[in-house]
Amino acid sequence: MTPQTAPDKDFPWWLVILVITGLALFWQVMSDPVYGAVLSTLAKGIGVTVIVAVVAYLGACVIGLGLAVMGLSRFVLLRQLARLYIEIMRGVPILVLLLYVAFVLAPLMVAAVNAVIEPLGLEPWRTRDFPLIARAVIALMLAYSAFLAEIFRAGLQAVPAGQVEAAQALGLSGWQRFRHIVFPQAFRMILPPLGNDFVAMVKDSSLVSVLGVTDVAQLAKVTAAANFRYFETYNVAALIYLTMTIGLSLILRRVESRLRAQADR
């Protein structure tokens, strides 16, 4: 396939179609009082959606990187523990995990904290004091950490062993080798799948509506049930999510292109 006909060289007609459709829907939203009222209501949940997605994703990256390092450890116990965690989390649907964390794990965590603080004379926690948004973030964090662990592991293993051995011969410690040699190269290789998972996290954050967290999806559900304008309400909700996910995708593509250009120099 020649560079002129490569898929990544095609003119983005799909983006043109989406932009035209989005502008038409946006114009209707701004000119129709029903759409305008729905948008003003759902817009209140955008901040919650962004916070849930960003915090859960950052936490999942930290846990996933730790799991990837454990999976590549020379100690068999660490490797087996990492694999056990990954297989369990990848095998449980995210919706089920959300409910489990919210109504099973959260009360257990509260009980564990109370077992520590009550002997100290401190006021015990109540399960209802554990915010639902925090439970949702923990659940998404645990779910995505398993998938990100596999991405990190593949990236770390893709770094040539000769470079690691050369760094070791120069006297770099294990942490210095990881920080200056292994991770920078691995990060450039795994950036595309990491970006894809972040976009997926934004979409899956809508699942937290089952816990009553007032994100865009929950506000759409409540608004549609109140005004019976299901068509208009879910059109606006879809427009909000599309704007966020397509915007993120375009930004990530630009970052990938710049990193690729720097690597080719």
Rank of each mutant, 00 (worst) to 15 (best):
Ala154Leu: 09
Ser31Arg: 13
Leu156Lys: 09
Arg229Asp: 06
Leu248Pro: 00
Ala200Glu: 05
Leu84Ala: 15
Val104Glu: 15
Ala237His: 05
Val236Tyr: 01
Phe198Gly: 03
Ala43Pro: 01
Ala261Asp: 10
Val210Ala: 10
Pro12Val: 11
Arg177Ser: 00
Pro7Glu: 13
Gly155Leu: 08
Leu120Gly: 10
Pro193Cys: 03
Thr41Phe: 00
Thr245Pro: 11
Thr127Asn: 12
Phe147Asn: 11
Val113Arg: 03
Thr49Cys: 06
Ala166Trp: 10
Asp8Trp: 07
Tyr230His: 12
Gly174Lys: 11
Gln80Ser: 12
Thr5Phe: 12
Ala24Ser: 04
Phe178His: 03
Thr49Phe: 07
Met189Tyr: 08
Ile46Val: 15
Ser31Ala: 13
Leu65Trp: 06
Leu67Ala: 01
His180Asp: 09
Glu150Asp: 12
Arg83His: 10
Ala6Met: 05
Gly212Asn: 00
Val76Ile: 09
Tyr144Asp: 04
Gln185Ile: 06
Pro184Leu: 00
Asp10Thr: 02
Arg90Asn: 15
Phe75Tyr: 15
Ala186Val: 07
Leu97Tyr: 09
Ala112Pro: 07
Leu23Pro: 00
Leu250Ile: 10
Asp129Glu: 15
Val159Asp: 07
Pro193Trp: 02
Leu194Phe: 00
Ala237Asn: 07
Phe198Ala: 06
Ala111Pro: 01
Arg177Ala: 02
Val54Cys: 09
Leu140Phe: 05
Thr223His: 07
Ala238Lys: 05
Val52His: 01
Leu252Asn: 06
Ile246Asp: 06
Trp125Ser: 03
Ala169Pro: 07
Arg177Trp: 02
Gly171Phe: 01
Met109Arg: 07
Gln185Thr: 05
Trp13Phe: 10
Ala167Phe: 00
Leu219Phe: 09
Gly247Lys: 05
Glu87Cys: 06
Leu58Ala: 14
Gly45His: 03
Ala220Trp: 01
Asp32Tyr: 08
Ser31Tyr: 07
Arg83Trp: 13
Ser173Gly: 13
Leu142Met: 04
Val55Gly: 12
Ala225Asp: 12
Arg177Tyr: 02
Trp125Ala: 04
Phe183Val: 08
Glu87Pro: 08
Ala43Lys: 13
Phe178Ser: 08
Val110Asp: 02
Leu239Thr: 07
Ile251Asp: 08
Asn235Ser: 15
Pro107Tyr: 07
Pro33Trp: 08
Tyr57Met: 03
Leu120Gln: 13
Ile20Phe: 13
Ser145Phe: 03
Val159Trp: 09
Leu211His: 12
Gln80Lys: 13
Gly64Tyr: 08
Ile51Gly: 01
Val92Leu: 11
Ile190Arg: 02
Phe75Leu: 15
Ser206His: 07
Val202Cys: 08
Leu148Asn: 07
Leu132Arg: 14
Lys44Gln: 15
Arg126Gln: 13
Val110Lys: 04
Leu242Phe: 09
Ile190Lys: 02
Gly71Trp: 04
Tyr234Ala: 02
Gln157Arg: 14
Lys44Ala: 13
Ile246Phe: 07
Asp197Cys: 09
Ala112Phe: 00
Ala237Thr: 02
Ala139Gln: 01
Pro160Thr: 13
Arg258Phe: 14
Phe26Pro: 01
